[in-house]
Nucleic acid binder design. Structure first.
Length: 267
DNA sequence: TTCCAGGCGTATC
DNA sequence: GATACGCATGGA
């Protein structure tokens, strides 16, 4: 991984990175593909930090940002300092994972903000991706950007009616209240053991095992967490009736991302 | 019209 | 602890 500045833009050379596979595989909901389809350009945000990123012949072009933001926000966000070739080499010992990596080897885990991930995946439950994006988009409209939970202090489910989030509105309200009351402090618990974080997150209404694991995997970089949704249950039944092999476990969350995408859009 | 979507709360056993 | 059912909304 190396980058250079070119005028206002930053050009990045790296491997194991595909924008479509990474930004459109159900781990983040605020990236929109631009243009006609022939060129690969995405615009989106991490909280309220904007970015336009495109894939060109030999590099990725990062626009609407600056070097300090690139280094401090986007390098970690796209997990660009992790060697995915090595992880895929480990996965290549497993037949199903090997296929999943061959199908979409440019997936990376997005290291998102813990609150943004938690909020997004509360909204995701029993929902489809276009509608998840719609609800989060309306949340951002309501607040002029992705709100801090402090901005939402005192919110009631009725206040959230314009989001058309359905039964999830009361879950968002409960989450916001617990964070504002400091009943749960994400910055503190993200250092706790995984099991303990999961237990604490699940005290929030509407947060069960799956949403908790998404919040941990995408919002706290717990790459051993495997969110078990309907698709991953199918994967496990079909390929891993006795669970993942031992050598996958430390990276099971990343394995999950390849397999989820493969099961959902491949085959 | 009915079914389903990156689940979870609740009731019941 | 396991299982069945309802849930807001909107697209297919």
């Amino acid at each position: 991984m190396e980058y250079i500045k070119q005028g206002e833009d930053i050009l990045l050379k790296t491997s194991d990175f595909d924008l479509d596979e990474t930004l459109d595989c159900g781990q983040a909901f605020r990236w929109e593909r631009q243009g006609n389809g022939s060129e690969c350009v995405y615009r989106g945000f991490m909280l309220n930090t904007p970015l336009t990123v495109s894939a060109e012949k030999d590099y990725f072009r990062f626009r609407d940002t600056d070097e300090s933001t690139f280094v401090n926000v986007w390098l970690p966000y796209f997990d660009l300092e992790t060697d995915y070739s090595e992880i895929k080499r480990i996965f290549s010992e497993d037949p199903a994972l090997s296929k999943a990596c061959a199908y979409a080897g440019g997936i990376r885990i997005l290291r998102q903000d813990s609150w943004e991930a938690l909020c997004s995946f509360i909204i995701s439950q029993n929902n489809n991706i276009p509608r998840i994006k719609g609800i989060i988009g309306r949340l951002c409209e309501m607040y002029g950007g992705f709100p801090k939970f402090e901005d939402m202090n005192g919110i009631s489910p009725d206040d959230l009616a314009p989001l058309r989030a359905g039964f999830r509105a009361k879950y968002i309200a409960d989450c916001v209240r617990k964070l504002n009351d400091r009943e749960i402090v994400l910055d503190d618990i993200k250092n706790f053991p995984t099991e303990e974080i999961r237990k604490i997150l699940m005290t929030i209404k509407g947060v069960g095992p799956k949403v908790a694991d998404c919040a941990m995997l995408y919002g706290m970089y717990r790459i051993d967490c495997v969110p078990m949704d309907v698709w991953m249950k199918r994967v496990m039944e079909q390929f891993y009736p006795d669970g993942f092999p031992e050598f996958v476990l430390p990276y099971a969350g990343i394995a999950q991302q390849y397999l989820f995408h493969y099961m959902r859009t491949g085959t």
